[in-house]
Design a binder for these strands. Structure first.
Lengths: 149, 149
DNA sequence: ATGGGTGCAAATGCTTTGCAAGTAC
DNA sequence: GTACTTGCAAAGCATTTGCACCCAT
């Protein structure tokens, strides 16, 4: 397990203890699976992925644990304007933001250091301590612009 | 009708004609209702609002028309981590982004011209035509940092 | 042993869709 | 007249929940 994963696990354990909740194998497995995600994943895909690995956790537990990880500050939930959520790890990953096509629902990731820097400056101005953020730009992707006429 | 509303109506009509779609009273009514929204609204509240005014449109038409307005670039769809969508007009409104406190849920608005400029540049790089965006920074506000142990 | 956690399946609730009737063009 | 739109109700689908059993502490 990577150093980052161990650190994340400590955050989870601390949160559980603080809230009189149990440390279970399911919670550890799901945490590690989420941390391994490079971009984002739907709850159902995560469920399927675990099943393909032979891990038997219920869909309900996947949903319940994802909520838990969000409360811990280890994951974030995005909807991209669709009617199902996407989840992604916050911890130990490069942060990226999203361009979302209103037509084909394609999601393009981007990262811009200067925006992050300005953001931090804005937070400083408001004496606001940033923990995570979502930055989504909706519009029409290259492919859909061509089909548009 | 305001000048902005007329302009929005032209955008809708142009889109409809271009796509061989009909200009119907339902579509105009819903457009105007959406343009009147100051912040954001749920589809079902919009439906209820119309009914209270004595306008008889079906829930299906409300949903279908909201999708249409999004495709026109006149409205945007957000879900703030909840499992139902919120809609808001894009047209003729001042744009602002949000700092959201995870503890007291206070919302601080900000606007930064430089971020907008960089965003446009990023879109250009991806040949992506931006229509709207949401930029939310989650964290701890000034007041809650003081109370934080 | 105790009370929180899990799996299952049913329920929930927002949203979409099939179809017949209506209407813009 | 044609074919796009609407309303209605049913269906769809992601997510949540009730409950009996399980297990971390």
């Amino acid at each position: 397990m990577s150093k980052a994963n161990k650190e994340a696990l400590q955050i989870l354990k601390k949160y559980l203890k603080k809230n009189n909740m149990r440390y279970t194998p399911e919670r550890e497995i799901i945490l590690n699976e989420v941390l391994a995600i490079k971009s984002h994943i739907e709850a159902d895909s995560l469920f399927a992925k675990l099943h393909n690995k032979g891990v038997r956790v219920s869909r309900a537990t996947v949903y319940r644990t994802l909520d838990l990880l969000i409360k811990c500050g280890l994951a974030e939930k995005n909807s991209f304007g669709q009617n199902h959520a996407h989840y992604e790890p916050i911890f130990g990953q490069d942060h990226h933001d999203h361009l979302i096509c209103n037509f084909c629902e394609k999601v393009i990731e981007f990262h811009n250091e200067e925006i992050e820097r300005i953001q931090n400056q804005i937070c400083k101005n408001f004496d606001f301590k940033p923990l995570s953020h979502t930055h989504q730009i909706f519009g029409v992707c290259s492919d859909c612009q061509k089909e548009d006429n």
